[in-house]
Design a protein around this nucleic acid. Structure first.
Lengths: 232, 232
DNA sequence: CTAATAAATTGAGTTATCTCAATTTATTCC
DNA sequence: GGAATAAATTGAGATAACTCAATTTATTAG
């Protein structure tokens, strides 16, 4: 159980309507308020560290974090990007609370940390949360399955196309965006070296598939990205 | 709801003690009996087909099945091997019942098919199943995470070593085993071409890491496989 | 504002892995 | 049980992607 030093109680929280926990009973809301805390993370800070355990389930309130596996020789793979009001990642909450992936903020972020025992007691006492949790876990599993086959059998063009389409369709919801991750992160999202990433981006710029100015990216030809993803 | 043409009622089933559904109430057991069926699959038959939906949750009772993603140009990836009394794979049961992976038997198998609505009603009415289901989904997610980084950054030796260690530690539970999957399947488990798989196996034989005679494989030097997995 | 540091790009050479084709070995079926 | 078919192995050549090093560009700190 943790000391409550959060500024805002759930009942008064401005994020209430977007929160995973909606329509809680008075009692559950009190329990949650007593056992959650809001924390600020600077860009680049580690939230979860693979190989450790955590007693918290984390929801981002603002900012963005990468969910990644850390390999040897500084070779990491970004599995997905976590955004506000999503569950960031799951410790093994019904086993040993261990973490198999790390989470690192890619920009200044705030997060709501909920005590795992409290989380468990709420989802076990209130079956309305079971379907949405299942859905979430299932979606993550499907995302990882898709990533697997894409990363293993597709060429570099297709992998960068997939990474860009992921950013457009599932992260920024726009063809025009300011890249909030580094080129190295993009490389780790596409499972390749940063040098190759740079070259492919240059090539896409050349072919007028993208307009790039530093961190500002505009997808000029999304159809072509989808085509490359398909045939690559 | 499906016609019950299963031979054995859950209460009398010899697999009862190994089954996911243990200690069911009379009522629940009756419900399950009315809405499950046992089916026989020949080796190579498709149980689940990616891109379709299914109204069944499938438990193998005997045999073995590969859970795989089918890519283009006959390029597949085997994610894991399903064994008796495990949940084979999950359709999106709280969404549209869609499947994102295919399942194909690698030997003659029998399976217990349970109606998804019945499965849902049981897990929602009986919270004792929630933790084990969560655990299961979490383990699968962790397995996929690990597969991802291993397949993407490791060399061929390490990938075959990983595949062999998976077979030894999690499938056959023995250093000596009869390979129940083909060389092509082994290649799809290691995410590489069947020719390269063949070459690496030959090399391991040469180096006396393995003893191979057709489908009969003995791991002579497990430490070396673990070493190759680590450094590769 | 400039120096120092870090991030990103570009180039050239190397290598791991794939593809295609030719055999060999195993399996199926009449 | 032997012919036909499929699976597995082996070899040689092609290539995609990596690594290392050199610049260039961007960011941070004094």
């Amino acid at each position: 159980m943790l000391n409550s030093n959060s500024k805002i109680k759930c009942g008064l929280c401005i994020h209430q309507h977007k929160c995973f926990f909606s329509n809680l009973s008075e009692e559950e809301r009190d329990l949650l308020n007593k056992n959650k805390t809001e924390v600020f993370y600077k860009a680049g800070e580690t939230i979860y560290k693979q190989g450790t355990s955590s007693n918290y389930l984390i929801f981002l309130l603002s900012g963005m974090a990468k969910v990644m596996i850390e390999g040897d020789h500084d070779k990491n793979l970004i599995l997905r990007l976590g955004k506000p009001f999503q569950i960031l990642d799951f410790p093994a909450i019904f086993d040993d609370n261990m973490l198999y992936r790390s989470s690192v903020t890619v920009m200044d972020s705030t997060a709501c940390l909920i005590d795992i025992d409290v989380f468990k007691s709420i989802i076990l006492s209130n079956k309305k949360y079971v379907p949405s949790l299942f859905s979430h876990l299932n979606q993550v599993q499907n995302h990882y399955s898709k990533r697997l086959i894409n990363l293993i059998y597709k060429n570099m063009e297709a992998r960068i196309a997939d990474a860009l389409l992921y950013l457009v369709n599932e992260i920024y919801y726009s063809r025009v965006f300011t890249l909030t991750i580094s080129r190295k992160d993009l490389a780790e999202l596409a499972g390749m070296s940063k040098e190759s990433t740079s070259r492919i981006l240059g090539q896409f710029k050349e072919q007028e598939i993208l307009h790039i100015k530093g961190k500002e990216i505009e997808v000029l030809n999304k159809k072509q990205l989808e085509y490359l993803s398909k045939v690559g």
